[in-house]
Amino acid sequence: MMRCCFVWPAAAILLFVVSGCAGVQSALDPTGAEAERINTLSWVLIIFCTAVFIITAIIASVALFANERWRQQLAGERLVIGAGLIFPAVTLTFLLAYGIFVLGMGGGSADTSDGLRISVVGERWWWRVIYRDENGRRIESANELRIPVGRPVKIDLTSADVIHSFWVPKLAGKLDMIPGRTNTLTLDVTSPGVSRGQCAEYCGGAHALMSFFVIAMPEKDFAAWLADEAKDAHQPTDELETRGQALFIASGCGACHTVRGTAATGAIGPDLTHVGSRHSLAAATLPNNAEAFARWIRDGQHIKPENLMPPYPIFSDEELASLSSYLAQLR
């Protein structure tokens, strides 16, 4: 008993050390203000709980194995009231105060005077991302969020169908997206880079495959990117891509997808205007390249079961090649 009581915490600490804290989706490797505050809190809690556990284990070991004299020291209500009532009452009060204090630091004073507003809408099973710039222009994208570094940005979270939860562990804790409600989350990223987020509330079907990337960029790059993103889609240049575009339009893809500047104006599925420039396809399920587009169109239900796009098994290989090269050049 005694041996194992010490082996376990030690093993625990070892696990933490060995596995390191790197990871594009790890709460232990924060690059956002809220995640950093929580990270500090986590370590305080981990150390406190480990200490309490070890002390309890020692007391229990004494009660079990020590000699009569030692054991009699523990054999009264004094221990129960001291260690079971007073100690937790005091320490937990301090912890609670600390936790509430960290909670109170949330929110941030996001300066929205520059007019940038971002909304993210949870859909089954992808993310609709809408930027509104200072001119009130509405720029829609999907499954990828780009934000400037160094200033808090407020993000409105809503849902189009069931409950989802917006979670980018490196940047902040999660916040649910609930039908009929709008929750606002402040992201304050401290250093540029890519982090990964995932839906954290079970939303049925392909819940496991509902992820996205957040790309934090320096202010200037962000402005340039946003200006680029606001433009219409690239027109296809070579013959293959032009055939792809024609096929895209004639086969009804535009019923659900928008490619700005073309006849495709659907609002049901993700906006594809600049789909080729994103880090991933299908809500961070596939890499972004022409081959992945082809796989997705032909075999989407296998890659991401139950997804809401109809299967398109009707294209020949050549047709698929032209379609996917058209989509891939939408950068």
């Binding site: 535009g254 659900c256 659907g266 049901i268």
Partner: peptide, 13 residues
């Protein structure tokens, strides 16, 4: 269409 319920416009196809 009826985008709330995921119905695309028929005339797209």
């Amino acid at each position: 269409g009826d985008s709330e319920n995921g119905v695309p416009p028929c005339l797209a196809c």
